[in-house]
């Protein structure tokens, strides 16, 4: 019935749940609490929405992971891919902001403020990669 060990699945599921909740809480803090984190503030609806989307993807996979089914890995993979796209975008944006600073177009560049927490969450998700690779060993595209 299951594609890989349920024990491993439960661990992955817990990790996914934590990641998902982290994104959701961050989003809620910015949206509801008006907290300003990095480059995000209340007016930045899309960035907040994106956090919720990633949270949803991770959380929807927890059930399947707990049963040790491949489908759960799918949600993890997708969540990671979207995180990479979003986190990568924010990194590039930081780079672009820095270049603008060098070109003299903007007055200041504060590196700490420019790092978006979504990127940090992406980094936290990276250890999942080797685990996922092991589980889906031998799979074809």
């Amino acid at each position: 019935m299951s594609d890989f060990s349920i024990e491993l699945g439960k661990k992955l599921g817990a990790y996914a749940l934590v990641l998902g909740l982290a994104h959701a809480i961050l989003g809620a803090a910015v949206f509801l609490g008006g907290v300003e984190v990095g480059t995000m503030s209340f007016g930045d609806l899309p960035r907040v929405a994106v956090l919720f989307v990633i949270a949803a993807v991770y959380i929807m996979g927890v059930g399947s992971l707990g049963k040790g089914r491949n489908e759960g890995i799918a949600f993890l993979m997708a969540g990671l891919l979207i995180s990479v796209a979003v986190g990568g975008l924010y990194l590039l944006e930081t780079g672009a902001q820095y270049m603008m600073y060098i070109l003299g177009e903007t007055d200041e560049f504060r590196i700490l403020e420019s790092i978006n927490p979504a990127t940090l969450l992406l980094v936290l998700a990276l250890p999942l990669l080797p685990m996922m690779k092991r589980v889906t060993h031998g799979m074809v595209w």
């Binding site: 019935m1 089914r69 491949n70 489908e71 799918a74 993979m77 799979m139 074809v140 595209w141």
Partner: peptide
Amino acid sequence: GGSVRTYTDMLDRVFLNKYL
């Protein structure tokens, strides 16, 4: 038995998911 066997099928479970 309905379990997915390729990366493509797997990813489509998410990208074509009716809510997501």
